[in-house]
C-alpha cells in the first residue's frame, strides 16, 4: 500500500521522471508526469501511447524514465496495459516470476484516452484489469501541431477549427466529459478522480489511491499547454489554478458509487478571467464568452457545486 502524503513537504525526494527530454518550456503534461512518477515510485511500469509524452520524451537514447516504459499505439494503451497486467498475474500464479507485482500505469493524452483510444480504455475497465489509466489532458492533439480533440473547449481555435468570417467562434462542439463517460458504465471500476497540476499534493494522493485500488482506476488530469493554448510558458500553473477557480475544470473523486468534491473555490471567478489570458480564445466575442459561462454554470449545478461566479471587481460580502 502506498500511504497518503500528508503535506507537500512529505512528498518523496526521489524522481522517476528525470531530465533528458525535450518537451516545450512550461509543458503541463511533463510536469504531470513528474508528479505521477514521484507518487507511484520505483515499482512501476509505464505505458506510453503515441502523443506528446511519447514523441517529446523518448527521443532515442535520452528517455527520462527511471522505471520500465513501453510504447503503445495511440489506439491501444488500454489493451496493452491489459496484457501486461494479465501477464504478471499468470506468471506469478505459475511461479514464472517471483518478484514484487508491479503497478501498471498508462499515461495517455486526450486523444489516446477520450477519442481514438477510448475503446481500448473501456475494454480494460470493463474487464477489471488492475491498471491505473491516466489521461493528461492538454485539450488538443498537440504533438501534431494543435488539432481539435474531444476535450478541446467550445470556442477554442485549433488548426482544424480556425475562426473565420463563416465560423467566427472556432470550435462549435462542447467538450466530451470522459470522466463522466467512463464512471457509470464500468462496474469493475474501483476508483476515479479528476486532478489538476495546480494541486500537486491532491494529484499525487489521487495517484496513490488509484494504485492502491484493487482493480482498474481512471484519473483525468488537466495539463495546460502553453503552445496550444497560447499563453506564456511561465503561466502553466496559474492557468491550471484558474481553470479550477472558474469552474472550467472541476476536482472530484468517485468511489463506491459516491462523488466527493475535493476542492471548491471559495469565490468562483467568471470564466472570462481564464479565457482572456489564452490566445486560443482571443477571437471570442462577449456573447461567445457568455455561452461558455452558461455551460460551466449548468455543469457545476449538475455536480452540485453551488458557488456563484463572482468577478474580482465585484463586492464579495
Amino acid at each position: 500500500m502506498l500511504e497518503q502524503i500528508k503535506t507537500i513537504r512529505h512528498a518523496p525526494d526521489e524522481e522517476y521522471y528525470v531530465s533528458g527530454h525535450r518537451t516545450c518550456a512550461g509543458c503541463g503534461p511533463a510536469l504531470v508526469y513528474r508528479l505521477v512518477a514521484k507518487a507511484a515510485g520505483p515499482n512501476t511500469i509505464f505505458l506510453g501511447p503515441t502523443g506528446c509524452m511519447y514523441v517529446a520524451n523518448t527521443s532515442y537514447g535520452c528517455g527520462p524514465f527511471a522505471v520500465p516504459w513501453l510504447h503503445t499505439q495511440i489506439t491501444n494503451a488500454g489493451g496493452v496495459a491489459s496484457g501486461v497486467e494479465a501477464a504478471y498475474k499468470a506468471m506469478m500464479r505459475k511461479g514464472k516470476y517471483t518478484g514484487e507485482r508491479p503497478h501498471v500505469i498508462v499515461m495517455a493524452g486526450d486523444g489516446g484516452a477520450t477519442d481514438i483510444g477510448l475503446q481500448a480504455l473501456s475494454g480494460m475497465l470493463y474487464r477489471g484489469h488492475d491498471v491505473l489509466f491516466i489521461c493528461y489532458d492538454n485539450e488538443s492533439y498537440a504533438n501534431t501541431g494543435i488539432q481539435t480533440s474531444p476535450t478541446t473547449p467550445w470556442g477554442a481555435v485549433t488548426t482544424f477549427t480556425p475562426s473565420g468570417p463563416a465560423i467566427p467562434e472556432g470550435k462549435r462542439l462542447w467538450p466530451k466529459d470522459n470522466a463522466q463517460l467512463v464512471a457509470h458504465g464500468h462496474p469493475e471500476l474501483k476508483y476515479l478522480a479528476t486532478a489538476s497540476l495546480a494541486f500537486p499534493l491532491d494529484l499525487m494522493n489521487k495517484v496513490r489511491k488509484g494504485l492502491n485500488a484493487e482493480g482498474p482506476a481512471y484519473l483525468h488530469i488537466q495539463a495546460p499547454c502553453p503552445k496550444g493554448w497560447q499563453f506564456d510558458s511561465d503561466k502553466t500553473i496559474d492557468m491550471a489554478k484558474l481553470a479550477v477557480d472558474t469552474g472550467m475544470f472541476q476536482l472530484y473523486e468517485y468511489e463506491n458509487g459516491k462523488y466527493t468534491i475535493t476542492y471548491t473555490p471559495r469565490k468562483r471567478k467568471p470564466v472570462e478571467e481564464y479565457i482572456k489570458l489564452q490566445g486560443r480564445f482571443s477571437h471570442l466575442k462577449p456573447e461567445h464568452i457568455e455561452k461558455i459561462q452558461q455551460f460551466v454554470d449548468a455543469k457545476l449545478k449538475a455536480i452540485e457545486v453551488e458557488v456563484t461566479a463572482v468577478s474580482e471587481a465585484a463586492p464579495t460580502d
Binding site: V80, G83, V84, A87
Partner: peptide, 12 residues
Amino acid sequence: LSVVYGASAAGA
C-alpha cells in the same frame, strides 16, 4: 493483438 503485445513484452 494489443493484449498479446503487452503480455509478451512483460515476459509471458
